[in-house]
């Protein structure tokens, strides 16, 4: 298997030339548009301004494409909680997950409340905050 290699930050010089040319053209058209408006040539002015704005949009789009952040992927373990419950007195403790925890595992430690060895892992879960907005169909 070949080693990992990323080239997300490289920008092609050709693309840079294209972006710069488009940007210059866009600004020139916009300038010509304003000049035409000032000279009461509204038809030419509108046309040039339209060209200019379209080219400006293209240049901005291309610029954002090159400026894309390098790909980043997190495979970190998500925060997990372990709930420990005393089967006798109902004492409940929630702590971070530790390797070796599993649901229904009997714990060796005695319950801090009733001092009996009746502690058991009752749940292991992660909490997720939903980012989606509510819709009228919920």
């Amino acid at each position: 298997m070949e080693p990992s290699r990323t080239n997300a930050n490289k920008i092609s010089p050709f693309l840079l030339v294209v972006i710069m040319t488009t940007l210059v053209l866009a600004l020139a058209f916009i300038y010509m548009g304003f000049q035409a408006y000032l000279g009461d040539q509204f038809e030419d002015g509108s046309l040039n301004l339209t060209f200019g704005v379209v080219l400006l949009a293209v240049a901005t789009y291309l610029l954002f494409q090159t400026k894309r952040r390098p790909a980043k992927v997190d495979i970190d373990s998500q925060p997990m909680n372990t709930t420990i419950l005393c089967q006798k007195c109902g004492f409940k403790n929630i702590r971070e997950f530790q390797r070796g925890d599993y649901v229904l595992k009997k714990m060796d430690d005695p319950c801090p409340k009733c001092n009996e060895k009746t502690l058991e892992i009752s749940a292991i879960f992660r909490e997720v905050k939903e980012k989606t907005k509510r819709t009228m169909f919920d």
Binding site: V73, I75, D76, S77, Q78, M80, F97, R99, G100, D101, Y102, V103, L104, I124, F125
Partner: peptide, 25 residues
């Protein structure tokens, strides 16, 4: 899949285990 790999590595329960958990209880 990427988040599952850590779960398996750490031996954590995954969502697919919901049925198994009901039976376990």
């Amino acid at each position: 899949y990427a988040s599952a790999i850590k779960a398996f590595q750490m031996g954590q329960p995954i969502g697919d285990g919901a049925g198994a958990l009901v039976a376990a209880r």
